[in-house]
Design a protein around this nucleic acid. Sequence first.
DNA 1: GGATGGTTTGACCAATCGGTCAGTTTCAGA
DNA 2: TCTGAAACTGACCGATTGGTCAAACCATCC
Lengths: 202, 202
Amino acid sequence: MTRPRTRIQQRNSETILEAALEVFSQQGFRGATLDQIAEVAGLSKPNLLYYFASKEAIHAALLSGLLVTWLNPLRAMDPDGDPVAELLGYVRRKLELSRDFPRESRLFANEMLQGAPRIRAALEGELRDLVQEKAAVLRRWMDEGRLAPVHPVHLIFSVWALTQHYADFDVQVRAVLGKAEADPFPEAGQFLEVLFRRLLEP
Amino acid sequence: MTRPRTRIQQRNSETILEAALEVFSQQGFRGATLDQIAEVAGLSKPNLLYYFASKEAIHAALLSGLLVTWLNPLRAMDPDGDPVAELLGYVRRKLELSRDFPRESRLFANEMLQGAPRIRAALEGELRDLVQEKAAVLRRWMDEGRLAPVHPVHLIFSVWALTQHYADFDVQVRAVLGKAEADPFPEAGQFLEVLFRRLLEP
DNA sequence: GGATGGTTTGACCAATCGGTCAGTTTCAGA
DNA sequence: TCTGAAACTGACCGATTGGTCAAACCATCC
């Protein structure tokens, strides 16, 4: 449940979570099966259940760390920094998360599509509080005339939507852009910088 | 398969598809079960399979009409109209789709998260062609100085991301905004209009 | 070389899965 | 009112599901 003790426990727990992330992020909770996870992990199904009490427990372990990681870039937005630079930095870090951890993004998206049955509480508590706190900072910046006035919460939504789109809809992005092997993220980064710069510069 | 003939066939086919949309959009293909769909539809499982050959067939029937509906707003963008007005109109119509057909949006999102195994071909064909066609129009508008120069395809991505976010992440949006009963769409519409106006006006 | 405790597994379980089928009920048209 | 087709159902099928368990394995320390 908490920290694995032996090296084997450490290694196998990680292997299982890695495999579970692969499967859950693609199939959702109900669509994923322990057999799939076991196969990806290269372990037997009973062995999975030796390390985690249930399918639910594996999923919970994945989700528990997720929200924190996901919100770190927002937390890092400095109220004493330069408004536009801070927000562009946030966008950049969030886009890097989409690029480097697309499966985590899809796991989160899956949970949202299902109506967030397992993290509803965190959304209405932790997440809401942080967003409201940062929205107040944004509102202050706007009042000071250092940021164009827009609805601060929807502004944060727009950062989420625009960055996560490149992870969650990766197939579509690549299909439309055509060049299957090319990396769409550099272009996306440039586009988003222009977008937010034009939106936010007073 | 094609058009139902009798009134009963018409009604029950619609009932089944309506129920299937409810379940598939929330659970994804693998996560959904025929029993769930049958219960929501108020029909017996064998009766479902009297109208549709298989679970796969129900899902396919839902998806087949989806892409067309989903792309209609983009199709409606008039190459001879006013650039900014046309794009804002597109955004408005797309946001209305998110508001009025959130389950369709989630069904599509689920398919994307799974890697689009059933509509990959349409993405690389029909969808790609339409986007490239409209991107050419956007590029022309930019060359004529009637639209600020940005990457046209990523511009279209941004419309998708920002509008679909309000359907796909509806739970999160409402959790963060707090007021559970309030409708976030009017505010969203205003925000998106400001965003795209500032981004696109030359 | 044993003893010990952490690790792994084949065999198995009840429940649920998508789907079939023989047979019954309902309905529309003559 | 009769009849044939359409609509519907309970019972059932083999496969798969999440999960259990006793037994075996294995590394380590004495």
